[in-house]
Design a protein around this nucleic acid. Sequence first.
DNA 1: GGGCTGTTCGC
DNA 2: CGAACAGCC
Length: 492
Amino acid sequence: MTERPIAVMWFRNDLRLADNPALLAAVKWAKENDGAVLPVFILDDVISDQLGGATKWWLEKSLTALNRNIADLGDTKSDRALRLFKGNAKTVLETIADDKSVKAVFWNRLYDKPSTKRDTEIKAALQNHGLTCESHKANLLFEPWDVKTGSDTDFKVYSPFWRACLKLPTPREPKSAPESLALFKGEVDEQINIADFDLSPKPVNWAGGLEERFSPGEQGAKDQLFDFIDDRLTDYADLRDRPDRRVTSELSPHLRFGEISPYQVWHAANHYADANPGKGKTASKFIAELGWREFAHHILYHATDLRSVPLQGQFKHFPWSDDAKGLRAWQKGQTGFPIVDAGMRELWHTGYMHNRVRMIVGSILVKHLLIHWRDGLAWFDDTLVDACPANNPFSWQWIGGCGADAAPYFRIFNPVLQGEKFDPKGEYVRQWVPELRDMPEQYIHKPWEASPLILKAADVTLGKTYPEPLIGLKEGRERALEAYQDMKKAAG
DNA sequence: GGGCTGTTCGC
DNA sequence: CGAACAGCC
């Protein structure tokens, strides 16, 4: 390589230059040691296991954007400013560290078990080799181990958790991107190209709707944040549950990959509240959603296996149904419940679904269809651009009734009432379920109640142009409540 | 972060 | 007779 000492910046879910503490530490280290920074991204099994079709698509775009930003900052035209590797992260880093010029490695912390286990081992190994090795806090406002109840335990309920967070010292101001970067420009063994990651979707045109809706990368994330603050935060508290109004931030995939930090979001929202009297309520409603993200990570960190094990033990005895046909219909948006089908189709086409609709489609799956929440989780993992190890399993346990501070299982959403309340004119349904486009408002959320005349006028034939509901709402509700009772009996 | 059903209260 | 509310799942 070279004689100059090298600091490795190991990027993971922090694909940004601004407010990146590990990067700043690496840059500072390089400056003080008259050295250079070697930015790397390693596609190992831990990361690979956490990717689905939609997140793969996102990651490829995000890495490309990050490379460009690093190249600009490091004053090179190289398309390999960010060095890419595939394989065991420990092996890769040890191989890189075999070069005697490599003296230090920096990264920002993650909170899922496979990552923390890996990172702990790597830190021990690298320090054994005599390297400086630093992990930084960057992707959460509050470390999971810093938020404790009065009796020194971790939290199980959101409200007291978030109250406790807000009593801790205020999250630091976001830091700027480094002003310059002494980028290492030499050769590194076993470095590969982004195409070798094999992240592009097949078939290629599947991602058209994702492409249209999202701009992965740090600039896209900043634009998303400030468009939201400027135009939509004002109505957020009042309209956040309305999928037909699109006032939510849609920052989740950017946060998922760390293209923007929660500190940047927190302070932008608070500055908005300070500058706009009367807007404190809507701002804190929004900031409380960052709180849910923190809570999901808190739970993830303390749980044994959030993806597979219900936090409430009695749910091990729940009589889930093995309904492959129902699952398939749900995945394809062919359940016969318009708001559910709209959501599932929005998901497939854009990699995203409005939060309120996620609750409705989740409730239908685990309650009316009695299908295991893990099947819903797996589908969301594959199709959502924001699927992450914390929010996705946390939320499925929430709607499954078995999670932390979960919706009780007997709290069953009625997709008709939810549709009428949160998509009152049926605009959201009409957008994603075009075969119901001409249904009158009164029946858009319950076409099975419309008279033959009305159906004909709307050019709808149930069972042909649009499915009959998979199950009657009353029947499904009663069946779910019975299953719940059976579980409680079985659990003793 | 629900919904259903039965009851009460106000007109 | 509908809105408001309680109790239950």
